[in-house]
Write a protein that binds this DNA or RNA. Sequence first.
DNA 1: TTGTTCGGACATTCAAGTTC
DNA 2: AACTTGAATGTCCGAACAAA
Length: 302
Amino acid sequence: MGDSNPESDSQHDPQSPTDSVQPQMTMHPITYSSMPTMHMYPFPPGMVSSQPTRTKRRQVKNACTNCQKACKKCDDARPCLRCVKYGIAEECIDSQRKERQKGIKRGPYKKRDGKTTNVDEQQVDVAVQPQGIPVPQAVAAAVPSATPPIPYAAPVTYPPGFYPQYPAPPAAKPGETPMYYPQIYFAPIPAPPPQATGQDGEPIGYPPPQYYPATFLAPYPPQYATQYMMPHPAHLHAHMRPDAQMPMAPAHHYAPYPQAYAKPMPRGAEVAAAPQMVDARRDGRMDHTRMGEPIHGAQAKA
DNA sequence: TTGTTCGGACATTCAAGTTC
DNA sequence: AACTTGAATGTCCGAACAAA
Ligand SMILES: [Zn+2]
Ligand SMILES: [Zn+2]
């Protein structure tokens, strides 16, 4: 039941080409009706100019070690939301990228001008670039091709306990590091139009208004809090997800938020005692890069 | 119903190769 | 030197499974 997964922080954005949607867009439209997913465009992107082009999935440059190990979405702030959520903010550190190996021969490349290459390449180009406009990688990455209907937001506070799922933070016990709790949430303004929903009530289109953790006041350390304040546009994705994906998990995904203190554990034992935070492979095949260790994602490519 | 595991799709990086 | 290619490397979605 992935839908109820509290880790689906990066909720699927109904309009996003996430997953296999984008590639599938190159498929013949006739397959559309038989496609299981409802988050599809009836036409390949670029074929219908009026269709908002959707951004691709967005990744952080460097996930923190916790998110990396858990295969879960991280964000640029440190500590990241997920670590804060699980009360392991102090363990939120950037993962290390292993150095790329050098000296590997690659063989001749395909020609780009079509002089020396196979014929179908040109056709491929057209298919891949419907617009016919080559976009530098850097630009493509920096400029989302579509702007999701992100509602304007304004900071709003709520009294402790106002939302059952966001209970008032407990007072730190003596000798214990205080938990960090979001104290301010953003209320989208105005509310997006009514959402059509598919089966399960999963929204088709953008999700209904949620309250987005925006910043952390005391006892959240100031140096961290600033990172969660209404961000510079360049950092919006940390919360608003310019990739058009749902900014935050549905309300019930926050339910486990207090989990960290609901089940008190000795400092430093959180990760070990809370397997959901690390998601290390049982078979010992480290799924995630742990400084040179193989990650399952890399293997999948081979 | 909620939380965990993990296969694999997708995104990014960057050295090798190509072109100017 | 600048640009392009494409494999290595990394992120994390989402379904299956497990536990409460
Ligand atoms: Zn993280
Ligand atoms: Zn973290």
